[in-house]
Write a protein that binds this DNA or RNA. Structure first.
Length: 576
RNA sequence: CGGGACGUAGCGCAGUCUGGUAGCGCACUUGCCUUGGGAGCAAGGGGUCGCCGGUUCAAGUCCGGCCGUCCCGACCA
């Protein structure tokens, strides 16, 4: 039993001005965290309790799935990162520094290098595989823009696991196991989530899923099918070739140039020429480390830069600036077209659906009409490079895609041999032949998961923690501290609850009842036992459910049993 | 890094335009009062006005530079 009067949980009535989203605001107001610097926080006692509970659930499920916990250092020598090639590739997010002797180090943003170094030193035989190691540890990423409190911090707790298998088949099995463990973990935290297909980004590897907690405040856009299980991050979501929904025959001859003074955007050109946006061939120029690329797609769609980047195989890519557009096309942006363009042209499938369209003339105030893809310009390929849209047909079935927003709380990757190759992690197979270890990696943001839970579980009064990760399960609240008998009785109940394995907060502060009620709601303790004077005089106390607001008047002798039953019930709701 | 905003007591803000003794609410301390949804009365404590420089008799206020913070974009657990 913890006494509130001695507990550092400084709640505030006022909202800190720099907190925008619910989880950030409520974590500050409930006295769970305090900011030290941008994206860097101290965890106060109750906040730490939440994190420890999240960690405990992760630990149990990782152990159940056969993983073993280790702990690696936050400080990592540069040599390992140079060996993997990421010292240069990872960019400014990697916080680097030197020790007194001038040796280079970084604070680990992720631990593929360290774990692979460990494993290559200890694992030499197929008999030692598979192996799955994880840790829950402080990470540092010098984020471009930290935001939303624990949602995107620079220093944060992450569970990161790394698996080592003899072959792809084994790795696929481990991946499935982790996928299932993750599903159990988030279900136990009472979260509404989806596992979505995702781009692999800087971590690399062959395939991956993100675990997204559905919330409007989420930073990621995802789509999911109403008819089947398909769901994906919009970065990744496939857009299969479309039917030619606007039948027409190609105009004979060649494109005609028309004057379009001052008309640069799709909407302007579409209105001016009276041509549907779907028949405009939008042309975007990109600069990449592999050279300039023009991407053409239907004017009704938007380009997906991740897909372009992956198709080109580029490390980086950016939309060409006004100056570069002029250099390449001889015209200001808004008049770019693929006809006669002196750079490689990549076409989205949607262009293949256009029999005859209009596009920029690479000349100020002019566009071309009667442009036939394949006749008037020849793209190097037709590929999927557009952004998915709500209502698109599902790539797996005949259903339609719905869009929503999500918070990425977990990410699982199949890494293949990316790191075992660069760091030479090998083993001898049964035939005595040297083989590369096949790896996977699996992350969960601990603080972010707690924040995501608040995003999904709060109301105007405060947090409504799922009991599995609440800082306390029950708040025992004597309304008047001057009434010695009442206080004694409340204290006895809080003590007995503790003895019966329930985490109770005893609000023994000499505050007015309103303040205590507000704080209990704000902090989000799932159950509250109230000892009021009238009820106490009649031999009763009250049990109130934070989520439903339901209140039961219960005889004092039955309170402990009733609370235990209610806690048990709530714990069950958080069982997968 | 590009765009926008902000920095005055622990928190929320006013004062800055138009230079002239630094204010309000909450919180905090003490006393009284009150005890079922952030009460009331009274008396207090708490500030290098983000930092450095400049203009001026005089700078929170005007000018210059720097630092920090938040929001929108590209990156990620």
């Amino acid at each position: 039993m913890i006494r509130y009067s001695r507990y550092l949980m400084p709640t505030t009535k006022e909202t800190p001005s720099d907190a925008e989203v619910a989880s950030h605001r409520l974590m500050l107001r409930a006295g769970l965290i305090r900011k030290v610097a941008s994206g860097i926080y101290s965890y106060l006692p109750a906040g730490l309790r939440v994190l420890r509970k999240v960690e405990a659930i992760i630990r149990e499920e990782m152990d159940r799935a056969g993983a073993q916990e280790v702990l690696m250092p936050a400080v990592i020598p540069a040599e390992l990162w140079k060996e993997s090639g990421r010292w240069d590739a990872y960019g400014k997010e990697l916080l680097r520094f030197r020790d007194r002797a001038g040796r280079e180090f970084c604070l680990g943003p992720t631990h593929e290098e360290v774990i692979t170094d460990l494993v290559r030193g200890e694992v030499h035989s197929y008999r030692q595989l598979p192996l799955n190691l994880y840790q829950i540890q402080d990470k540092f990423r010098d984020e471009i823009r930290p935001r939303f409190g624990l949602m995107r911090g620079r220093e944060f707790f992450m569970k990161d696991a790394y698996s080592f298998d003899a072959d792809e088949e084994g790795a696929a099995g481990t991946y499935r196991k982790m996928y299932e463990a993750y599903s159990r973990i988030f279900r136990r935290m009472g979260l509404d989530f989806r596992a979505v297909e995702a781009d692999t980004g800087a971590i690399g590897g062959s395939s991956s899923h993100e675990f997204m907690v559905i919330a409007d405040s989420g930073e990621d856009a995802i789509v999911s099918c109403g008819g089947c299980e398909y769901s994906a991050n919009v970065e990744k979501a496939e857009c299969p070739p479309e039917d030619r929904d606007i039948p027409s025959s190609p105009a004979p001859g060649s494109p005609r140039k028309v004057s379009t003074p001052g008309k640069r955007t799709i909407d302007e050109v579409s209105a001016f020429l009276n041509i549907a946006p779907g028949l405009l061939i939008k042309t975007l120029l990109f600069e990449t480390d592999k050279g300039d690329v023009a991407v053409v797609l239907s004017g009704k769609h938007e380009v997906n830069e991740t897909k372009v980047k992956n198709y080109v195989g580029a490390e980086w890519l950016k939309l060409a600036g006004e100056d570069r557009v002029r250099e390449i096309t001889g015209a200001p942006s808004g008049y770019t077209g693929p006809v006669g363009l002196p750079v490689r042209v990549l076409a989205d499938h949607s262009v293949g659906a256009i029999v005859s369209g209009a596009t920029g003339a690479n000349e100020q105030d002019a566009h071309l009409v009667d442009v036939v893809p394949g006749r008037d310009f020849q793209p190097e390929a037709y590929a999927d490079v557009r952004l998915v849209e709500e209502g698109d047909r599902c790539p797996r079935c005949t259903g339609n895609l719905r869009s929503s927003r999500g918070i990425e709380v977990g990410h699982v990757f199949r890494l293949g041999t990316k790191y075992s190759r660069s760091l030479s992690a090998t083993y001898l197979d049964a035939g005595g032949k040297e083989q590369l270890i096949v790896m996977g990696c699996y992350g969960i943001g601990v603080g972010r998961t707690a924040a995501a839970a608040i995003e999904q579980h709060h109301d105007q009064d405060g947090i409504r923690w799922p009991i599995s990760i609440a800082p306390f399960e029950v708040c025992v609240l004597p309304v008047n501290m001057k009434n010695a008998g009442l206080v004694e009785e409340a204290k006895r109940v809080a003590g007995e609850l503790s003895v019966r394995g329930i985490e109770a907060l005893f609000d023994d502060r000499d505050e007015r009842p309103g303040i205590k009620f507000k704080d209990a709601d704000l902090v989000g303790i799932p159950l509250r036992v109230t000892f009021g004077e009238k009820n106490y005089g009649a031999g009763y106390a009250e049990i109130r459910d934070r989520t439903t607001g339901e209140t039961d008047r219960v005889g004092i002798s039955a309170v402990v049993d009733r609370v235990c039953a209610a806690v048990e019930e709530k714990r069950k709701e958080c069982t997968p």
